[in-house]
Design a protein around this nucleic acid. Sequence first.
RNA 1: GGAGAGUUGGCAGAGUGGUCGAUUGCGGCGGUCUUGAAAACCGUUGUACCGAGAGGUACCGGGGGUUCGAAUCCCUCACUCUCCGCCA
Length: 422
Amino acid sequence: MLEIGRIRNEKEAIIEGLKKRNIDATTTLDQLIEKDASWRAAKTELESIAAELNKLAKEIGQLFKEGKASEAEAAKTQTSELKATENSLKQDVESFEKEITQLLYTLPNVPNEEVKAGKNETDNEVVFESNRTHTFDFEPQAHWDIAKKHELIDFELGVKVTGAGFPFYRGKGAKLQRALIAFFLDEADKAGYEEFIPPLVVNEASGYGTGQLPDKEGQMYHCTVDDFYLIPTAEVPLTNIYRDVILPNEEFSIKLTGYTPCFRREAGSYGKDVRGLNRLHQFDKVEIVRIEHPRNTANALGEMLDHVKGLLDKLELQYRILRLCGGDTGFASALTYDFEVYSAAQEKWLEVSSCSRFDTFQANRLKLRFKGEDKKSQLCHTLNGSALALPRIVAALLENHQTPEGIRIPDALRPYTGFDFI
RNA sequence: GGAGAGUUGGCAGAGUGGUCGAUUGCGGCGGUCUUGAAAACCGUUGUACCGAGAGGUACCGGGGGUUCGAAUCCCUCACUCUCCGCCA
């Protein structure tokens, strides 16, 4: 959520920034500024009436104490008119607040200066390409065929027991999952991220904190009996650790990681894009989350990119990094880099990681702040990234490391799998 | 699931209708003393918002109510703890 003060002060810059997302925010911002002014006027008036009422109440108390009951009764009548005005002002203030919040919820984050304008994924820029390529002297098979042949993943069994998008992993397929999770967590640990095992369901407040609610409600599974939501990513519980927190000084750099299954209802996709492991309702992911002083955000994002690069290099995969254009950058993000690995068999790039900086957008909703040197509190910056999401990594490993002898496990992973080939 | 007790400032813990944003202790910060530290003593120490400022408003788990006036009374919801039951 954007800060109202920023809208007041930097209206033109926000309008320019949001143009990169193909959004003309002029009307919304004008409405916000107008409503904010009305709100402040009403609020000032309300507070002065409240002050007067407080004063009268004290005087009445004093009169009773001195035994001047009749004077006190007379003073009481004075308050009724003021109270009526107070009540109507209270309602005004509340309705302005509600309208302002509603409008603020509709505005996405302002893209970073590095973000280029653009409509959709076709306008994303490739900013890095790894120097590895995968070549085959035979026709490579798609991962769903490989998985079936080696009995690694059973999609039909998932349909039977749960439904589409909930596969069973079995045998070496299950061990490969476990190996990847352990590998990713160990690498995150080496990079200084503290490991957490968070709850997999969260309450409503946490959903609001990271911005899944109120808008993207349909994306999450909702346990209505208890009003809990299944997490769509570990970002939600990990970032919400710091909801309503004021860090005591400017010396902080918080690095968290966690492995969780992720649950996404994700309606509306079908066909080849969702075949096999490409899109699931439940999948595994190791997430990294950072909470940073604004001055360190750019640096932190760079470190996250290097970290993910390192993972993909160790897995010996061909990949590239995209800087998302305005139109493709997520609602809460100011700047997002996507990692894609090449799938030789599917002849397409698969997104395996997304690293974003949210600047104050999440922190504002989370009320996550730090005390500056001047003792005033300021909003922190939050960042997060996948390091990494498993299903597409598994797809890429199976497809790109297939040999006539089977699937070759990259060296870095062998200590974790305990086998060299599938 | 049943019964009971709770929820107050960083922590502990007072406060049952007015002078309570809140006693006190611990912790934190500043100072005195000390070569330095500890102890002792003195002072200070929540958050947010409105206001140019003076100042003001709100917050004692959340929401609502009673009252001129609520941390304090009433209703409601959430959570925590204890005992019993059930259970990995």
